[in-house]
């Protein structure tokens, strides 16, 4: 097994990935413009996966909880917003939806996390599965279970770029570009929040060591509420973007399953990892879907991301940027 631990294995893996990504173009299956189009599309959808993964990473970092309810939270946030928008202007609805997400964070901390403090990780994980079921059920009872269209004025028309460079240009969905910009802004804001504010510093302290943080007087409960609120707000943003792309419907919560390989590939505890992991997964998924899918009979996007992440983990068991774990007896 030692061969996997060598540094050059990581380089080899990255090189193999790059070759795999470039292969369709080099082998002449696709021309450069088509290939570029697929790559751009992959990167854009990767950013959207990162958005969901970000919520997962935030919670895992601060409380060590692998939050399976993130997908349910995305759906619930989007449903709340969409149904409120039927009665009031967008800004008011957005504010109320944000408040609802904060309220959920507070309730989860009070009713679920606090009684389960000091339990094993797997028990906490199962508890968030229970929370996911609960939020799914109550969301559909309150807001209904139809498909709703969320229109916040995103341009639906794709744009043709670089017409002068290539014949026919390349199609880029403007919706994806805007989503990517929003996601980038969100990540920037989170980075600032974590690095420059007192609360952010407290969050990082809790992430490093629960007990040490508690012993110097950082209130653990409040930190958890803040972190769950922030990831609730991230879920809201993800819900808005995914909802306006696909419509707000039950299947929206399945994107949590798309975010899981992103998280393990990037490392559970790393925000840059979530972003880069999202880009790699999005890219790999799109390329494999377009160029590998037809060879294997289609439908491979459901598992390809997982297998990609699995191969990655064989070389780097803590993901790209995850904390190195030193085992001691």
């Amino acid at each position: 097994m030692n061969i996997f631990q060598q540094k050059w294995m990581t380089g080899l893996l990255l090189a193999a990935l790059a070759v795999g990504a470039l292969a369709p173009m080099l082998s002449g299956v696709a021309g450069f413009p088509q290939w570029l189009e697929v790559v751009l599309g992959g990167l854009m959808s990767g950013v959207l996966y990162s958005l969901v993964a970000l919520g997962l990473v935030l919670i895992f970092k601060a409380s060590g909880v692998f939050n399976f309810a993130q997908g349910a939270m995305v759906l619930f946030a989007a449903l709340t917003l969409v149904r409120l928008m039927e009665k009031m202007p967008f800004v008011v609805a957005l504010a109320i939806a944000a408040l609802v997400m904060v309220a959920i964070a507070w309730l989860v901390e009070r009713l679920v996390l606090r009684p389960l403090v000091n339990q094993e990780g797997i028990v906490l994980f199962m508890a968030t599965l229970g929370v996911a079921y609960f939020i799914d059920g109550i969301g559909q009872i309150i807001w209904g279970s139809d498909i709703y269209t969320l229109d916040i004025g995103m341009p639906k028309e794709p744009k043709i770029l670089l017409e002068k460079t290539f014949e026919g240009g390349i199609l880029v969905s403007m919706e994806d570009v805007i989503a990517a910009v929003i996601a980038a802004a969100l990540v920037g804001a989170l980075a600032l929040f974590f690095q420059k504010t007192g609360t952010g510093r407290a969050l990082r302290a809790v992430a490093d060591d629960h007990q040490a943080a508690q012993s110097i007087g950082i209130p653990l409960g409040r930190i958890w509420v803040i972190v769950w609120s922030v990831s609730g707000l991230v879920a809201l943003v993800a819900g808005i973007i995914w909802g306006s792309k696909l419509g707000v419907q039950f299947s929206l919560q399945l994107i949590a399953l798309k975010a899981l390989p992103v998280v393990i590939l990037g490392g559970f505890t790393s925000i840059p990892g979530a972003i880069l992991g999202g880009l790699i997964i999005g890219l790999g998924e799109k390329l494999s879907e377009v160029y590998l899918g037809p060879l294997l009979g289609g439908g491979i996007e459901n598992w390809f991301a997982y297998v990609l992440a699995l191969v990655f983990l064989l070389v780097r068991p803590e993901g790209l940027f995850g904390e190195k774990h030193i085992d001691r007896v």
Binding site: M126, V131, F134, D136, G137, I138, I141
Partner: peptide, 11 residues
Amino acid sequence: HIELMVFGALI
């Protein structure tokens, strides 16, 4: 839906 909710809560 209620089943889902109660199931989650009971878990």
